[in-house]
Amino acid sequence: MSGDFVKLVSADGYTFVVPRNVALQSGTLRSMLDPTGNFTEAETNTCHIQYRGVIVLKVIEYLAYKLQYLDTSSDEIVEDFSDRVDPYIALELLTASDFLEV
């Protein structure tokens, strides 16, 4: 079971269990979970992300959105993710997206 899901822990202690293929959409998480890297994260399938839970939640939501449209031409995507982002968290989300390479 643990092979299919990974645990993402936010700075304020929220835990998110997400499918591995969703988490792997992020470059940083992919490196963390890379079994050849010998990181603790890869062994325990748990990644600590130093952002607030609300940010991590939104990032995970985006990762799922990204995975869903992975093979769709950009023109055909009608669902606009920016409708789902509260402007209040936009700046923090920007720094998180930069860190997590999404």
Binding site: Y69, D71, T72, S74, F81, A90, S97, V102
Partner: peptide
């Protein structure tokens, strides 16, 4: 181009808005 736009781009767009 395939796939969704990057989250960073989306955020910058929102910031601009």
């Amino acid at each position: 181009r395939r796939g969704a736009p990057g989250l960073g781009d989306i955020c910058i767009q929102i910031i601009g808005k």
